[in-house]
Simulated assay, not measured.
Amino acid sequence: MFRISTTPIETATVMATVEDPTCGGLVIFEGRVRNHHRGRDVLRLEYEAYQALAEADGNRILRGALNRFDIHAAACVHRTGMLDIGDIAVVVAVSAAHRDAAFDACRHIIDELKATVPIWKHEYYTDGTDEWTGCDHCSGHRH
């Protein structure tokens, strides 16, 4: 299950979707808004997504992880909207019988998500400037 959320993400809720008594490994990744990026002080972030495509792509990534790794379940939720420093932007949860598969699948999911899913990050800096990051084709465009 992959979904986009406009409200704060509850990690425990995402975790509950993958828990299973047959699984000894449960890996949770929380991506949080940090106060810096490439040497610049960040004030806040705004995420935008093409929701239908993002959810389709995200679910494709999760299905791929289920086929590629020896895992029981995987889930991911990504926020959109304005986020402050420390807010949770994304949660990935993976369960497996053993930890190695859970760790490997979790890393694969977040890496694929960042590389391919249409979610865009707009950074606002403490010096009053802002820019879209990780999205070369967004430069100069207002969404």
Score class of each variant (00 low, 15 high):
Leu43Asp: 09
Glu55Ser: 05
Arg142Lys: 15
Trp120Val: 01
Pro21Arg: 09
Ala74Phe: 00
Ser5Glu: 11
Ala54Phe: 01
Gly81Glu: 10
Met15Ser: 13
Ile85Arg: 07
Leu83Trp: 02
Gly128Asp: 10
Arg79Asn: 12
Thr133Ile: 09
Ile85Cys: 01
Glu123Ala: 04
Leu26Trp: 02
Met82Pro: 13
Ala56Ser: 15
His108Gln: 15
Leu43Ser: 14
Gly64Ile: 06
Asp111His: 05
Gly58Ala: 00
Arg38Pro: 12
His137Gly: 14
Ala65Asp: 02
Thr129Ile: 13
Ala12Cys: 12
Ile61Gln: 11
Arg34Tyr: 11
Cys23Phe: 14
Arg32Gln: 12
Asp130Ala: 15
Asp57His: 15
Ala65Lys: 00
Val42Pro: 13
Gly31Trp: 05
His72Arg: 01
Ile88Gln: 01
Arg32Ile: 07
Tyr47Gly: 06
Ala115Val: 09
Cys23Ser: 05
Phe2Ile: 05
Pro21Glu: 13
Val91Phe: 04
Met82Gly: 05
Glu46Asp: 12
Gly39Ala: 05
Arg44Glu: 00
Asp84Glu: 14
Ala93Thr: 04
Pro118Leu: 04
Trp132Ile: 10
Arg60Glu: 15
Asp20Leu: 04
Ile110Glu: 08
Leu53His: 11
Thr129Gln: 07
Ala49Asp: 03
Val42Trp: 08
Glu55Val: 07
Arg60Phe: 08
His141Cys: 06
Phe103Asn: 11
Asp130Leu: 13
Glu131Ser: 03
Ala73Asn: 03
Ile9Gln: 02
Ile85Met: 02
Met1Ser: 05
Arg142Ala: 11
Glu19Gly: 07
Ala54Ser: 03
Thr17Lys: 04
Gly81Arg: 01
Thr13Arg: 15
Ala115Ser: 15
Glu55Lys: 03
Asp20Gln: 11
Leu62His: 05
Gly58Glu: 05
Val42Thr: 06
Arg32Glu: 03
Ala54Gly: 06
Glu46Pro: 01
Gly39Ser: 06
Gly81Tyr: 02
Asp57Val: 08
Gly128Ala: 09
Trp120Ile: 02
Arg79Gly: 00
His78Pro: 10
Thr116Met: 11
Glu46Asn: 02
Val92Asn: 05
Asp57Met: 10
Pro21Ala: 13
Val90Glu: 04
His143Tyr: 15
Leu83Met: 14
Leu53Gly: 03
Ala115Pro: 05
Val14Glu: 00
Trp132Thr: 04
Glu19Pro: 01
Arg38Met: 07
Gly134Met: 02
Thr116Pro: 12
His108Ser: 14
Gly128Met: 14
Glu131Thr: 02
Asn59Ile: 08
Arg79Asp: 09
Met82Thr: 11
Ile110Thr: 10
Thr129Ser: 13
Glu19Met: 07
Ala97Lys: 15
Asp41His: 15
Met82Leu: 14
Val90Ile: 15
Glu48Lys: 04
Phe103Met: 09
Ser95Gly: 01
Asp111Asn: 04
Val27Asn: 10
Tyr125Asp: 10
Ile119Leu: 08
Arg32Ser: 08
